[in-house]
């Protein structure tokens, strides 16, 4: 099925590339780990999608939005650190997921199922991938400045709340799309690993941004292609590929 491989590859490239780009911002916000509980929160949605037979991402999206809203609200109300809230939401997401999820059939929700992606879904994935890329690209300097110092960004006239919202929405879209590619368990890897590998090799911001995207795309191509030859699931292979890229970059790591 060369056509199916094409669709899988194209979707994988757009998901992984956009996720990696967003990852460069999340890494400097120290927030990559937040994508994991969001992925877990996507699981109940993915479970419903499986039960009722619609796309995983579509099922995941409202749950991810809910998760982001919960984390945002908890941070505002409790002033607890993000990592603590993350742990709370993480456990809750998994718990709820396994109430719904028929464990025997859980594989696609857990590790993704890009190999069966349809034509329309691919088109939607491309559009959303590009949308996230453009959004992140347009707001990159503003978000990065706010990362480094929020007060300076505010004094410079940057609407930090607005950019935070944009950023969180991008995270939501990427997590929902990522569920299709790597499932709900490994979404953090999709944003974290290419960015981390890129950071190892980069001196400048431009290098960092482009290397992350390139590593994300290579991981998707290698992982999905390897999946068709070996019959192993694509999701884990994509993550393993980016893991290997990361290992290779370690000796060159710039302090």
């Amino acid at each position: 099925m060369p056509n199916q491989l094409m669709l899988s590859l194209i979707s994988g490239i757009f998901i992984s590339g956009a996720a990696a780009y967003l990852g460069t911002i999340m890494l400097s916000k120290k927030m990559t780990v937040v994508t994991d509980p969001l992925g877990h929160l996507a699981l109940p949605g993915a479970a419903l999608a499986m039960i009722y037979g619609f796309n995983l991402s579509l099922g995941a999206f409202p749950f991810v939005i809910l998760g982001i809203f919960i984390i945002w609200l908890l941070e505002l109300k409790t002033k607890l650190p993000m990592e603590t809230l993350t742990a709370i939401v993480f456990a809750a997401g998994i718990g709820i997921a396994f109430l719904f999820l028929p464990i025997d059939e859980a594989e696609a929700a857990l590790i993704g199922d890009i190999s069966k992606i349809g034509f329309i879904e691919t088109i939607v994935t491309i559009v959303l991938g590009i949308a996230v890329f453009i959004t992140v690209n347009q707001s990159y300097s503003e978000i990065m400045l706010a990362n480094i110092n929020e007060d300076v960004a505010k004094v410079e006239g940057i609407n930090v709340k607005f950019y935070n919202l944009i950023y969180l929405l991008s995270v939501a879209v990427i997590v929902a799309l990522g569920v299709n590619l790597v499932g709900g368990l490994m979404t953090a890897a999709l944003v974290a690993i290419p960015a981390a590998a890129a950071k190892n090799l980069s001196i400048t911001l431009v290098q960092y941004r482009w290397l992350a995207i390139i590593f994300g795309i290579i991981s998707a191509i290698v992982g999905i292609t390897a999946s068709t030859f070996t019959g192993l699931p694509a999701g884990p292979l994509v993550i393993i590929t980016s893991g290997i890229i990361f290992l290779i970059t370690i000796p060159a790591a710039k302090a």
Binding site: L27, S141, M144, N147, I148, E156, K199, I203, T204, L205
Partner: peptide, 17 residues
Amino acid sequence: SVRDTPLTVKDFFYLKK
């Protein structure tokens, strides 16, 4: 506070456009 990101002096100025 800026070591977490690959930022040159040039990039620093870029952040403020």
